[in-house]
Design a protein around this nucleic acid. Structure first.
Lengths: 343, 343
DNA sequence: TTGCCCGTCCAAAGCGCTTTGAAAACTTTT
DNA sequence: AAAAGTTTTCAAAGCGCTTTGGACGGGCAA
């Protein structure tokens, strides 16, 4: 059932029917009701393509999700982020267009999105320092919001980020207060902006107590379970093992926990672990009491906020960029305790 | 840059330019080259909306991903499934339209996809027995492929599924052969078709050895980490604890492992665990040697196959439905051993 | 009654593309 | 050289919608 047929069935013109449905004033209340009722009865939905061609707005948002060419990994936070964003899109009658691309083709993916005119805006995931996609999108004139930040020039575009620096600063202080001196950092890839910030928070906190980060206790890679396992084992079997770990993701921490188990070490007694928890829906950090002591910040919520902001930017072009910095509070769980050999 | 402008800049008509770009024969090789070169130079991409309006094909596939209203959970396998499918879409110049909806609105979401004419086909995720979406899509005439099956009438629609019944039959036999008699099943929600089949495989294997499944050893719920933890603890602390677990997902098994750790039990010695492994990219079951003994089947691969089949159905309507049943091989890892008190 | 305004409706153009039917420009055949 | 065929190009219609510019008629003031 299309507009023409609907109009014919009502004995009205397409114009009037279209206006009635879109709540334009120049149609009488009686006809509006009649039209809406008929539309409902026929389960009429205007054809998206035609509508967007006519209005010049696509009512769709693009998400480009990169797949690591090295390990063929898709970041597990995408599911939750997209669930959050998708919820907002649904509420605002927008579609979500997903492009899954090898990470080296990412730029072209955005270029295509803009050239093909298939979206009104885009979300930029997993920004790297000085990420070229940001300059590209600005140049293309496609509205966008970055989930994370990309180094300097933060003021010139809209972003939603967690205060990664402060979170890791705080977590490190917490471990230092417990008497830990050899604290390992199992971080995400340094190529990512968030990983750099987390490291800075960690290093600063150490420095403030007159300690220097030991390169032997720092790892940086894609945050898989095995990466956590391998890193923890290597460090714990080394000459000067750490007494505590700072781990950038729940999944990696699960690998760390496995390593501890295999080595007969007890989490929270022999070795402490603090994680950053993205609050993935299927990997909750415990129900009532947290399993891991964690700095937590909901990725789903970040998705919602990004989407809200992007829709707002599209509706109101020309406004100054918007920034949201989410604080990650530290919640104490059972994975941390005083450094061994300490009261 | 649109077609009109491109044509003008070349001194050709839109018709000729369009035909040159779409490799129609009625244009000379010389002009074709000239046109393609100019298109490349101007980074020209035909407007998707206009193109699909003209052709009647949207070049887009819809995925409706339900969010559990009970727990606000989005199934972690979606990320990998979509990565696989998205790869195929990209290769075939199709877009992926994602709708995130509360699971109770799922039907309406498909109805909307069809009415708004925004996709050429759809993937049905997580089918339940006698899933109403299948009848609905058939009625709407929207091509679709089901990831999984939905009970009877399997012949009438296309699907890609894992042989869940055989996988769990095999896994149960494996544990029985190791001497286990009290084998627990920590399954997905019984409302899902795959969970029902897995239970059947498990029960049949037990029955074939003259054993009856003990309801006290069977659980069914959303496959979270905590669900695994809670179920394992409850059963192990019960009067007649199991010596082995059959777990429907890696994530749930991580919870089971945590429970074992907390109780001071050793995985593979005190208690055996066999899992079904969907081979999620960020949660590999070990690198070289598998952590868990597992029946494994790649969800990403399933996504690829679903996508290939769907595109094929769209290209060649009227062909009989297609079915792919993937076998999940059993790989032995370190999580299983002989039943305690047995040589 | 006339004139004007306002509320209500409509015909037609246009969004950027594909595709039909026909014309123009070459080639080949007679 | 004309006729016939072939290749190459084009103008225009149409996809399903929105939106512009008008038309029509009823109500009100003059």
């Amino acid at each position: 059932m299309n507009l023409k047929e609907l109009a014919a069935s009502l004995g009205l013109s397409q114009t009037t029917v279209s206006r009635a449905l879109n709540d334009y004033p120049e149609v009488s209340e009686a006809t509006r009701q009649r039209v809406k009722e008929a539309a409902r009865r026929n389960n009429y939905r205007p054809n998206t393509r035609a509508k967007s061609l006519a209005t010049g707005r696509t009512m769709a948002i693009g998400h480009v999700i990169p797949v690591s060419t090295r390990h063929e990994i898709v970041n597990p936070i995408f599911a939750d982020f997209i669930a959050g964003a998708g919820e907002v899109y649904a509420r605002n009658n927008h579609d979500l267009l997903l492009s899954v691309v090898p990470d080296r083709d990412e730029e072209q993916a955005y270029r295509d999105l803009a050239a093909k005119g298939s979206v009104d805006g885009a979300i930029v995931h997993a920004p790297r320092p000085e990420d070229p996609r940001i300059a590209l999108l600005s140049r293309l004139g496609l509205p966008f919001v970055v989930h994370g930040r990309a180094g300097v020039g933060d003021g010139s575009y809209s972003w939603v980020d967690v205060n990664n620096r402060r979170a890791f600063h705080r977590a490190t202080e917490f471990l230092l207060d417990l008497g830990h001196r050899r604290i390992a950092l199992i971080n995400g890839q340094e190529a990512m902006d968030f990983a750099r910030r987390r490291r800075e928070g960690y290093e600063t906190a150490l420095a403030e107590r007159g300690l220097r980060a030991d390169p032997a206790l720092m790892r940086s890679d894609e945050m898989t379970e095995f990466y956590g396992y391998r890193s923890a084992r290597q460090m714990l079997e080394g000459p000067q093992p750490p007494t505590a770990f700072l781990v950038s993701s729940m999944i990696t921490a699960i690998g760390v926990r496995r390593a501890l188990g295999d080595m007969g070490l007890r989490l929270g007694r022999d070795v402490s672990v603090v994680i950053h928890d993205d609050e993935l829906s299927y990997l909750r950090n415990g129900e009532d009491i947290p399993i891991f002591t964690a700095t937590r910040s909901s990725v789903k919520q970040a998705g919602r906020i990004c989407a809200e902001i992007l829709l707002d930017i599209i509706r109101n072009p020309g406004r100054p960029p918007r920034h949201v910095l989410l604080e990650a509070e530290l919640t104490v769980g059972e994975s941390t305790g005083p450094a061994p050999g300490r009261p």
